[in-house]
Each structure stands twice: as C-alpha cells, then as structure tokens.
C-alpha cells in the first residue's frame, strides 16, 4: 500500500532503473535471512507423537536380511489400524504379523512366498502395493496412459500452434 505512489511514478519507465542496488541489497538480505534460518534450525527439538512400533532388537544380524524384513513390513498393511503399515503400528496384530514375517524369512521363504501367505489369509487388502491382476491393470497402467495423454495433447497443440502466425504481443509492443 505505502509503495503505490512510487509504483505509479515508475510506471511506463521502460529504461533500466537504478533499482539494481536495492535489489542486490534485498538479495543479500534474503541470503542472510536464509542462512540465519538454517543456523537457527541447528538446535535440539523435543516433540510428541503417539506410541508406535519400536522393536527391541534387530530381527536379523545380516543387514541384507534386515533390509528385506523392513521393506516387507513397509508394504504390508496393518488391518486393524486406520492407515498404517505393520512396520509402523504397535497393534497386537501388527506385532503378530511382523513375527510371522520374521519366522517365514528365517525358514528361508522368499518375499513372494510371504506376500502370498498374507493375501491367502487377508486378501489383496493387506498389500499396500496392489498386485497386478485384471482388476488393477488400469491402475498400474495409469502413469503411462496419463503421460501419453498429456504429452500427446501437448504435441498436437504445439504442432498446430507452430503453424499459426506469430503475432507480436502487447508487452513487446509497448
């Protein structure tokens, strides 16, 4: 508001204005602000959240197995929770399912075996990554379909427009 007088005065003045100094000043102030922000963030926070799943021990000594275990837990849905993986939930069922995953892995079963074990009992709902079936082909092909539609339409429009005459625009004309 308070700058409107100035804006009016500057209007129509297309030549470079002695504004660069002020902007540089502004730029350096911004950099200083961001640096200060970054530094101020280097403090210790203490914050709250609900009880969630923390396992007492690593399930596997072998880091590769542990990674497999965590990845599997991350794609299995806790069925009693609102919308959580069994890795995140502390619900008794989630604990049981994690134990089941652990035991099956120790018995040398593959990830697919474990996924199949879960879907045989709980249905596809238990998998956060929907399996490829007739009912999900469309879902899984959505990224490709949408990308093709988007890029296809863009290509058609651009080609059409590139054949039209290019007019000088008002901004340039003034």
């Amino acid at each position: 508001m308070r700058r409107s007088g100035r804006a009016e005065a500057a209007r129509g003045n297309g030549a470079p204005r002695p504004d660069a100094g002020r902007l540089a000043e502004f730029g350096s102030a911004l950099v200083a602000f961001l640096t200060a922000l970054l530094l101020s963030l280097a403090v210790t926070l203490a914050v709250t959240g609900p009880a969630f799943a923390i396992e007492a021990e690593r399930a596997f000594e072998d880091p590769a197995l542990q990674k497999r275990y965590e990845d599997l837990n991350d794609e299995l849905r806790c069925l009693v929770c609102q919308n959580q993986t069994i890795a995140d939930s502390n619900a008794p069922l989630a604990q049981d399912l994690r134990r089941e995953v652990r035991e099956m892995m120790r018995a040398g079963r593959t990830d697919d075996d474990i996924r199949q074990f879960m879907t045989e009992r709980y249905g596809d709902f238990v998998l956060y990554k929907p399996p490829m079936t007739a009912r999900t082909y469309l879902l899984w092909s959505a990224p490709v379909i949408l990308l093709l539609i988007a890029l296809g339409s863009v290509a058609v429009i651009v080609l059409k427009r590139s054949r039209k005459p290019i007019e000088p625009d008002p901004e340039e004309a003034t």
């Binding site: 069925l79 009693v80 008794p92 069922l93 049981d96 399912l97 089941e100 045989e120 009992r121 249905g123």
Partner: peptide, 13 residues
C-alpha cells in the same frame, strides 16, 4: 495365545 491360528484364518479383529 500367540495368535498363530488366528492369522491362518485371516482374523484381524
């Protein structure tokens, strides 16, 4: 008590 059979039956609650 461990819930193993319940898992086999797909019990969730």
């Amino acid at each position: 008590p461990e819930g193993d059979v319940a898992i086999d039956w797909g019990v969730y609650g």
